[in-house]
């Protein structure tokens, strides 16, 4: 009796038993997303991963999404996936010395669940999400920059600012000029920023990001940083163009 009870209790306490719980968003693609982008690793749906997006996307090319991970220690990596997008993976974010929060905008090809999964040091993915309805078409359109032809003048240009927040942290907002072409618009090859690092002035890596095609043109990113007010940004797109900038208040 006693070993059996221990087994039952430990299964209740272990997150692994929740690994098969149904997706609260009822995504038809959840198992695919789990296998492909979380490598089939253990997960649980967790309200500590708070995801915000409007229920209806006003502009399928610029759907604002933000997430905050609260009350989880040592978040290693956060993955954002729009399950029903032709290119589901939006970004991967590894906060080193900043809060596991991020705001950005993305393209949606149709209404879709948007899942945000945060991996803690114990190897468990904590998953939150939200459904966004959309008129769609966001992934198969050429970027404005490419169709107007003037993207070359601004490619890789960075603008930014830093604000003090009421909770004592600082907010860093960064805009990177880049077409972020998905490769799904006829005759326009994939052209997007692949990675980005946020560093302190003394070259400490504060966060690393892998960015993918669904991120909106001229990405606008909002970070919750500590007390710093000066930063360096380093990145590269899939054609080898470098992003290098110093930003601050």
């Amino acid at each position: 009796m006693r070993p059996f009870l221990v087994f039952v209790l430990s299964s209740l306490l272990s997150p692994w038993v929740w690994a098969d719980e149904p997706d609260p968003l009822n995504s038809p693609q959840w198992e695919f997303v789990h296998q492909r982008f979380l490598k089939g690793e253990p997960y649980q749906f967790d309200g500590k991963v708070k995801v915000e997006a409007p229920p209806d996307a006003e502009d399928s090319l610029n759907v604002p999404v933000s997430f905050q991970v609260e009350g989880l220690d040592s978040v290693q990596e956060i993955v954002v996936v729009a399950d029903l997008n032709p290119l589901p993976q939006v970004l991967r974010f590894r906060p080193k010395v900043m809060r596991p929060n991020l705001g950005f905008r993305m393209k949606l090809q149709q209404g879709s669940p948007i899942h945000v999964a945060a991996k803690t040091a114990d190897g468990l993915w904590h998953v939150g999400g939200v459904w966004v309805n959309a008129a769609g078409g966001g992934c198969t359109l050429p970027s404005v920059g490419t169709s107007s032809g003037d993207w070359t003048k601004t490619l890789g240009k960075v603008s930014a600012n830093v604000w003090q927040r009421p909770d004592g942290s600082n907010r860093l907002r960064v805009r990177l000029m880049h077409p972020m072409d998905t490769g799904l618009a006829s005759g326009i090859p994939t052209f997007h920023i692949e990675n980005l690092k946020v560093l302190s002035q003394d070259d400490q890596v504060l966060a690393e990001l892998d960015l993918f095609e669904p991120l909106s043109e001229n990405p606008m990113l909002s970070f919750d940083v500590a007390k710093q007010t000066e930063f360096k940004l380093e990145g590269r797109d899939n054609n080898g163009n470098r992003i290098q900038a110093e930003v601050g208040r």
Binding site: E58, S159, L233
Partner: peptide, 23 residues
């Protein structure tokens, strides 16, 4: 309000950014 933020906010937030120091 959510729709109006999508329509009107991008222009206003861009005004608040400063060009970075870049080579």
């Amino acid at each position: 309000l959510r729709r109006s933020v999508a329509h009107l906010y991008p222009a206003l937030e861009t005004e608040q950014l400063k060009p970075a120091k870049q080579a």
